[in-house]
């Protein structure tokens, strides 16, 4: 009467990394901006890899406000999708081995997004994390924090509301 042995670590890692790569790799705008995601367990950190084309004020110089808004919104959408995907993979609702771009859950749609610009974005890499404050059947509310050198000194934060993708699971009402 022994418990089932836990899966080997590389099997677990491979499954999760594959799902994340599929989710992020499908978004052309992430590649255009130079955004990647770093995963530790279920926690994601978004990385904005600095490039000269991201500049909005050449005199300071500072990163374009639109880049910052894009980076934060992408962090929110991927973070929210990842949470949905994580639950479905870990509970076995979706078999990660059979996951393809076609069977991936649809992305949430942004309803509104508000960005607070706290300090100018310096010409170097930036990081962001999303926190899903509420995720219901239809709507979700997500908060994002972004920083550069110092985790405690945010250079931008944002809050957004999202329409959740419809799931194929039939429910009554």
């Amino acid at each position: 009467m022994s418990r089932t042995r836990p899966e080997p670590v590389q099997v677990v890692k491979e499954r999760r990394d594959r799902a994340l790569d599929l989710l992020v790799g499908g978004v052309p705008y992430a590649r255009f901006l130079g955004v990647t995601f770093d995963r530790r367990g279920d926690e994601l950190t978004a990385l904005l890899h600095y490039d000269e084309k991201l500049i909005g004020n050449p005199f300071l110089p500072a990163i374009h406000g639109g880049v910052i808004a894009s980076f934060l919104e992408m962090t929110a959408i991927i973070g929210l999708s990842w949470q949905i995907l994580w639950d479905e993979i870990e509970t076995g609702t979706i078999a990660a081995e059979n996951l393809t771009p076609e069977t991936l859950p649809r992305l949430p749609k942004t309803i509104d997004f508000t960005v607070d610009y706290l300090r100018s974005g310096l010409p170097r890499d930036a990081y962001a994390r999303a926190r899903v404050n509420r995720s219901g059947r239809r709507y979700a509310s997500v908060h994002v924090e972004a920083w550069q050198d110092n985790r405690e000194k945010l250079f931008a934060q944002a809050t957004g509301h999202f329409l959740m993708p419809r799931r194929d699971v039939a429910t009554n009402g």
Binding site: P28, A69, S70, E73, M74, P101, F113
Partner: peptide
């Protein structure tokens, strides 16, 4: 600039920019 490959719709962030 596409944000959702299943629809080809431009990412909201690009519209923000």
């Amino acid at each position: 600039l596409v944000g959702d490959p299943s629809t080809g719709v431009i990412h909201g962030g690009a519209v923000s920019a």
